[in-house]
């Protein structure tokens, strides 16, 4: 293993982490502030991806696709919140799990009825196609660098929103004491709807960005949903900072596990095929092992933000 390969894999880990962060930021807000487990968060990701794919195919522009996908994802999120989920904030987590699981089934099948069972195609926008050789001998796709950049910008914007703006102040206040906020005359219902819409928008953004590199298909939401839950649990529910650190950690563990574990095990086992098999099994499990270990030593995640 060369030093350059190590660098390249680190970049890969970083890119996966940023992608997960986009998903995790919205989920952890909804979770931390409304105390709501939303399994349908993956559906917003899928909706974002499908709308972006459909619109960019129709208009020929990826950017218009993304621009349409964001408000659609946010609108679907807010509609779902108003129609069904807001009644569940005070309920048991299990009721929330059941209802949002129902939403997953609904959205998956709806997508299949609208767009058919086949995966959709999204091209990389021409401006971002091609690769640059940041690391000698390893041309890196520009589009992946764009994702990293966009994710970091979103992280900064989120921080600004929460620390600097009035809405952010209300979000923080609502998280620590919702009765007090509503007693002060703030429309807490509306605030929650906005937060929910924001979360859905971020998930939609992640979905739209994922289109050119991943398959836009039914069930894509569940694949990433579980990873996202791992991220926010590792990071600590409700903490944006935790989500960022958690996402990068999951990205690193997953990528290094896949990249280096089999080679490492070849040094231990004599039979290379045994080493490959064992390495592949362990790396499939690596993020779950990470989550279990974190929880065993820090039962409330790395950065517990709110009660």
């Amino acid at each position: 293993m060369t030093f350059y390969l190590f660098l390249e894999q680190t970049l890969n880990a970083f890119q996966l982490g940023v992608m997960l962060f986009l998903m995790a930021a919205g989920l952890t807000l909804v979770f931390g502030i409304m105390n709501m487990i939303n399994l349908a968060h993956g559906s917003f990701y899928m909706i974002g991806a499908y709308v972006a794919a459909y619109v960019s195919d129709a208009t020929g522009s990826f950017f218009i696709g993304v621009a349409v996908a964001l408000p659609v994802a946010a609108a679907v999120g807010m509609a779902v919140e108003i129609i069904a989920l807001r009644r569940l904030y005070k309920r048991d987590h299990l009721d929330q799990v059941l209802a949002t699981f129902g939403l997953i089934l609904f959205f998956n099948e709806l997508t299949s009825i609208i767009w058919g069972p086949q995966a959709l195609f999204v091209a990389i926008p021409p401006v971002f196609s091609g690769s640059v050789e940041l690391i000698p001998g390893a041309p890196y796709p520009i589009y992946r660098l764009v994702i990293i950049g966009a994710g970091l910008i979103v992280a900064l914007l989120m921080r600004t929103l929460i620390v600097k703006t009035r809405t952010g102040m209300l979000i923080r206040a609502g998280a620590s004491n919702r009765e007090m906020v509503s007693a002060l005359g703030i429309d807490i219902d509306r605030l929650y709807t906005i937060i929910f819409g924001l979360g859905a928008l971020l998930a939609g953004l992640a979905g739209a960005f994922a289109g050119p590199i991943l398959a836009t298909e039914i069930g894509m939401g569940e694949n990433i949903l579980i990873l996202t839950f791992v991220v926010i649990i590792v990071g600590g529910i409700g903490s944006i900072r935790g989500a960022l650190i958690g996402a990068l950690l999951v990205g690193l563990v997953d990528t290094y596990g896949r990249a280096f574990l089999p080679q490492f095990l070849r040094m231990i086992f004599e039979d290379p095929s045994v080493a490959d098999g064992v390495g592949a099994s362990i790396s499939s499990m690596s993020i779950y092992i990470l989550m279990a270990v974190v929880l065993i030593f820090r039962p409330r995640g790395l950065f517990q933000a709110y009660g």
């Binding site: 390969l5 390249e8 890969n12 996966l16 894509m220 694949n223 896949r258 592949a280």
Partner: peptide, 21 residues
């Protein structure tokens, strides 16, 4: 190289980097 990936895996950047190497 003979590589077995996770069932349902979505991102192959790590494998591709190893492959190129």
């Amino acid at each position: 190289g003979e590589v077995y990936t996770k069932l349902g895996q979505v991102d192959y950047a790590a494998e591709l980097a190893n492959l190129r190497a």
